[in-house]
Every structure is written in structure tokens, then in C-alpha cells.
């Protein structure tokens, strides 16, 4: 039982945090919103340069060959800045799937390339327009197509830094890659959405704390009032009890059994609930300012909304937990049990 992270893992996360803090803050968000874009080439080049896109790729495909534990820490940092670029889905879900199907695919050697994924769990495809290629599913088989080989219909969404599309395609115009592990892709998508949820939640709390220290009413900072304190304390409690679930899910995902799937689902549910709770508390603490476009809290509320229903709805994830509860042994000695041990 070891929940400590290695120095290497910590350094990777700190590198990501520093890069995002420098390049993805209020000035940048506003510039992108005004320009109507959700992808910045300069930042993506920096992300690629620091190796963040290589973490989940096996060494055989030119990657670093680390695990979901490592990448979840990066996804959390991406959530903390509501990162617009598709680092998490491309480098955490789609590219590893492509590498598993075609380790020598030339796209994997292209540093700046992103891969989008049309997973059956999601009706729409995120960042399909800026992708170098899109992974598509038909009867369990994977196909690869470039955006101009498919029909993309933009679906405007409330998150100004997110782009999603309806994708129509014909297998005749796509390259078949064979049977793919869509279940693993779903688990990864859900896990990394959860990790982003932790980051979104913590940022919403941190923004509210900064505002509550500064904003004065009745002659004192509003953060000195218990009603304000308790909103934010409750949000922080939700974060503290989502974090170890996300960490455990990241460590267990490799098992691909009923327990690990339930754990990923648990992480997905509670992390995005924490994000929603924190974002709404943050808006409330900011008062009318929080309801304005000028204060950036709305970005975190909107991203939390998107991720709550992406990669499996709450009902889907609750059902997976119920399956674990009602088909496997329960009890205090079963916290880390595996399906094979009960077979």
C-alpha cells in the first residue's frame, strides 16, 4: 500500500503546472475567447516540447511508456487551467489506442499531431477539427480518418474553450485498424475526465478564496464570515474525498475487472460532482461578479458540465458500481479485492 508519488512523477506534474500557469491564465483565456479559437499552436508546441504528449505512449511507439498514474497528474493540472487543447483526450486516450493498434503509424512520430476519438460512449467528438486524424468505431473495429475524409458538423457548446462535432463517415473512406479495446478507452477517458475534475474544482475554490480575502463588505473581508467559509470548506471536503479515489482508480485501471471499472466510475462521479459543487460555490462567493463574463469562474462551471456527461453518464457509472456491489463480495476486506480472486 503506497500512495506516495515518486520525485519523477512530482517533477513531471510540476513542469506541467508551471507551463500551464505561464501560458494558460486569464489573459490568455480572454484573448482566445475574443479570437474565437480553442487551440493555440504556440502553447501546443510547448506541451509537445516538454514531452507531455509522450507519457502514455509505449517506448516501442516512441513514447516514454509511463502509466495512467503519471498521466492523471497531468490531466489534473490541465483541469486546473481549463486547458483548451485536447492534450488529455489525444495523449491520454486516442494516441495510446492508435499505438496499441498500429505502433509504427507515422502519425505517432509527428510531434505536433493530435488524435481525436469518436468513442461510442460520446455522441460528439471533441477537437475533431484541429486533429490530424480521428479514431472511429464500427462493430468494435477501429478506423482512422483525417478530418477531410469525414463530415464534421460543429455543435456550438456553452464552454467557449471547447469544440465538439457530429461526425459522419463512411468506412470506405477510412483506414481499418482492426479490433480495438474500446472499454479501456472508455476507462481512460473517464479516469482522466475525473482527474481534470479535481483540477477544475481546486481552481474554482482557489479563485473564490482569493476573492473572499480581498472583497470587503460590512467593513471586513467576506471570507471572514462563516456562511462564506462553510461553502468553500464543503467544496474542499468533496475534493479531498475525490482525490484518493482518482489516485486509486489510476493505479487499478490496468486490471480491467469489475472492481477497477467500478473504481473508475466512482472517481468519475465524485470528481465531477466536486467540480460542479466547487464551481457553483465559487460563483456564489463571487456574488454578482461571479455571474459576469469578466470573472473566469464560469469557464470551470462549463467545463465541469461538459465532462460530467462525457465518457459515460452518471447513470452509466452508477450502474457499473452497482454491478460491482451486487456481483462481488463486499465488506472492509474487499476494498482492494480483484475479480479473479473471487472467481
Amino acid at each position: 500500500m503506497d500512495y506516495t508519488v515518486s520525485d519523477e512523477q512530482r517533477m513531471f506534474a510540476e513542469t506541467a503546472r508551471a507551463l500551464f500557469a505561464d501560458s494558460c491564465g486569464p489573459d490568455n483565456w480572454r484573448r482566445m475567447m475574443e479570437a474565437g479559437v480553442a487551440h493555440e499552436d504556440a502553447r501546443w508546441a510547448q506541451i509537445v516540447e516538454t514531452g507531455l504528449t509522450l507519457i502514455m505512449l509505449p517506448e516501442s511507439a516512441g513514447g516514454i511508456g509511463l502509466t495512467e498514474v503519471d498521466f492523471a497528474m497531468i490531466a489534473q493540472e490541465a483541469g486546473y487551467v481549463a486547458l483548451p487543447e485536447p492534450l488529455v483526450e489525444s495523449a491520454g486516450v486516442a494516441a495510446p489506442m492508435l499505438a496499441a493498434l498500429a505502433p509504427d503509424h507515422p502519425l505517432l512520430a509527428e510531434p505536433a499531431a493530435t488524435v481525436a476519438i469518436a468513442h461510442p460512449a460520446n455522441p460528439f467528438v471533441a477537437a475533431a477539427d484541429s486533429a490530424s486524424a480521428i479514431l472511429l468505431e464500427k462493430d468494435g473495429e477501429a478506423y482512422l480518418a483525417t478530418p477531410d475524409q469525414v463530415t464534421l458538423t460543429p455543435e456550438p457548446v456553452i464552454d467557449p474553450l471547447r469544440r465538439i462535432f457530429r461526425v459522419e463517415w463512411d468506412a470506405a473512406n477510412a483506414a481499418p485498424l482492426g479490433k480495438a479495446d474500446w472499454d479501456l478507452a472508455l476507462d481512460r477517458g473517464a479516469l482522466f475526465a475525473a482527474a481534470q475534475g479535481i483540477g477544475l474544482a481546486q481552481r474554482a475554490v482557489d479563485m473564490a478564496v482569493a476573492y473572499a480575502m480581498d472583497r470587503q463588505q460590512f467593513g471586513k473581508p467576506i471570507g471572514s464570515y462563516q456562511a462564506v467559509k462553510h461553502h468553500l470548506a464543503s467544496a474542499q471536503v468533496a475534493i479531498e474525498f475525490a482525490k484518493p479515489v482518482v489516485a486509486t482508480a489510476a493505479a487499478e485501471i490496468v486490471h480491467g475487472d469489475i472492481q477497477s471499472r467500478a473504481r473508475v466510475s466512482h472517481a468519475k462521479l465524485v470528481a465531477l460532482e466536486a467540480a460542479d459543487r466547487a464551481a457553483r460555490a465559487s460563483i456564489q462567493v463571487h456574488g454578482a461578479m461571479g455571474y459576469s463574463w469578466e470573472v473566469d469562474v464560469h469557464l470551470f462551471l462549463k467545463r465541469a458540465l461538459a465532462l460530467t456527461y462525457a465518457w459515460g453518464t452518471p447513470q452509466f457509472h452508477r450502474d457499473r458500481i452497482a454491478t460491482r456491489m451486487f456481483t462481488q463480495a463486499m465488506g472492509p476486506d474487499q476494498t482492494f479485492a480483484r475479480e479473479t480472486e473471487n472467481a
Binding site: M1, D2, Y3, T4, E240, F241, A242, K243, P244, V245, A247, T248, H266, L269, V270, R318, I321, A322, M325, M330, P332, T335
Partner: peptide, 25 residues
């Protein structure tokens, strides 16, 4: 009520994971 039964399990499990994490740290 099934959603609450599932939630009760999630809460108990999350508490356990949090304590394992604290113990490890």
C-alpha cells in the same frame, strides 16, 4: 433508493481510500 445504496458504498469506500492514503503518507 438504489442510487442512495450505491452512494453509501461509494462514501464508505472513499473514506477508506482516504485513510489508506493518509496512513501511507
Amino acid at each position: 433508493l438504489e442510487a442512495d445504496v450505491v452512494r453509501a458504498h461509494m462514501n464508505a469506500d472513499a473514506y477508506a481510500l482516504n485513510i489508506y492514503q493518509t496512513a501511507s503518507w
